[in-house]
Amino acid sequence: MNKIVLTAVMAFALGTGAAQAASNVPTPAAQKWGFSGIVGHFDQPTLRRGFQIYREVCSGCHGLRLVAYRNLKDLGFTGDEVKEIAAEHEVFAGPDEEGEVLVEGDLRMRPARPTDKFVNPFANEEAARSSNVGALPPDLSLMAKARKKGPDYLYALLTGYHEEPPEGFELSDGMYYNDYFPGHQVAMAPPLADEMVEYEDGTPATLTQHARDVVTFLAWTASPELQDRKRMGIKTLLFLLVLTGMMYALKRKIWSDLH
């Protein structure tokens, strides 16, 4: 039996120390999100501000491998704008007619197209780790669904940094203190601050505004179907309510001759 299995069996039989460490992290405060609730939907200007933050701040380290540039049309970008955004990035072009994959020692590249997925900031995991003191910046596509109370947690994390750790807390080199990260030590430097990004629409550029916008954007990347889903849900449930009411009347009628 190899090590992985042993770890699993231990984790399963005993729980882990890390799980206990995680339990002293405060529960993130519940925020009001435009996309939560039965009639929740994504506000397009918020999404676009969020995308701007992703583009100018997060995308330096974090990928969005499940999202294609063409999906940005949901944010109100036109076909040509999407093309321009995609073309800012390069993807491997494949071998040329002679089967050569290198041009002067570099991989043959072509500009990304709208049908391409978001290009990762790093070529591979090793490159990502070596640029980030050994830590791997996770892909953000599904982050809003991959944590308990995802959006609230992300908001709490982004706004939960302290310049100095509390008295008596030993912070490792290159780590930052955060109230909400399991173990309180996170390798990501505080990514957002007041005036981090200048919004085109004149929205005040505060830390909390930045956090709200980028979390909304990430909620969209995780559940792009959310709006369709909720709209269809309301119609379906109203329909079922009517149908069930009718079936109740029919049931009473059919059963009435028994009594």
Partner: peptide, 20 residues
């Protein structure tokens, strides 16, 4: 008819989770 009537309530319960 009784099963179908019950099915109506069940579908609402089930689809509430699916959609919301």
């Amino acid at each position: 008819v009784k099963d179908l009537y019950g099915l109506g309530w069940f579908m609402m319960f089930y689809l509430f989770f699916v959609f919301f």
